[in-house]
Design a protein around this nucleic acid. Structure first.
Lengths: 147, 147
DNA sequence: GGAGAATTCCCCACTTTCCCCCACTTGTCC
DNA sequence: GGACAAGTGGGGGAAAGTGGGGAATTCTCC
């Protein structure tokens, strides 16, 4: 399985393309080829799943109880934003307009590895996200990983 | 498993490379090869995990529930700073720019063994860290180890 | 249904960064 | 004091990132 990590600031060109860092491309599973599904992420960003991780996600979604309205709402939201994209010869993906608008991305993007997926943020939106965190990293680690 | 100990002051060259002391390189597990993952440490320093220790860490991270915001906050932070590096033929690792800035490292670095990982500090930052400790070594020992 | 406009996709070329290798200096151990 | 290992520094080549031109496709409006 892929294990994305690291951060990189890239420019989004006039055609709405962003490069995916070579290190992240290198950690793709061969079965994932160059295909991704991008969709709306948690907090104000875009999630980019390689093919294999997305299929796992689809499995989880398919297992939800569709007689619950909350499940339907969740599934509709994640799927209505979803878009399948492939890397071009230069290792870039095109960003769909609705997702760019949702994430507030214009001409710069921050690419962040998040283990099974890649996140694409507008740099300023991300800076604000960091500021808004209640706990610092050390406290967070203690809470999450068990102190 | 590796058991890093000791301290050593090294210079960081113009290309952002630091040597890892030969003694620490010698205590690497063979399975770790020459591969490390460096990431943001606690307090203002860089953590360097050999491959085997990092894989254990990744396993813990992958087990977190990503539908909890606190978990996402933590995972984003630890992974966005993470970078996989390998020793060059001279036993050095390259320091990623963002990590150097975070840790305040410029041209000198203090390498400290910390059992399962190695810590890289800016010498001045580390001196200040020592000064700021409220308890002396003996008191600390009593609190932590249970006197 | 057809023409024009806009968009997408594919490819090529330039620039910059990174990585690998080689050589020198310093330190340590016998 | 000599030999070897450890640490420091820099140059060249390959790869990664950036930008743009042109063909094909789709969309829209008449």
């Amino acid at each position: 399985m892929a294990s994305f990590k690291g951060q990189a600031a890239y420019s989004v060109d006039s055609k709405g393309r962003v490069a995916i860092p070579a290190k992240m491309r290198g950690s793709l599973a061969p079965s994932a080829k160059s295909t991704f599904t991008m969709t709306r992420g948690f907090e104000r960003c875009v999630f980019l799943y390689p093919l294999d991780a997305w299929e796992r996600m689809e499995g989880e979604i398919a297992g939800l109880n569709m007689y619950s309205k909350q499940s339907r709402d969740f599934v509709r939201t994640i799927l209505m934003w979803a878009d399948e994209v492939t890397l071009d010869a230069q290792g870039r993906v095109p960003l769909a307009r609705p997702l760019m608008e949702f994430a507030g991305i214009t001409d710069k993007a921050l690419i962040i590895g998040a283990l099974d997926h890649i996140e694409i943020w507008d740099p300023e939106v991300f800076a604000r996200y960091l500021e808004e965190q209640q706990s610092d990293y050390e406290t967070l680690a203690e809470k999450v990983m068990g102190g």
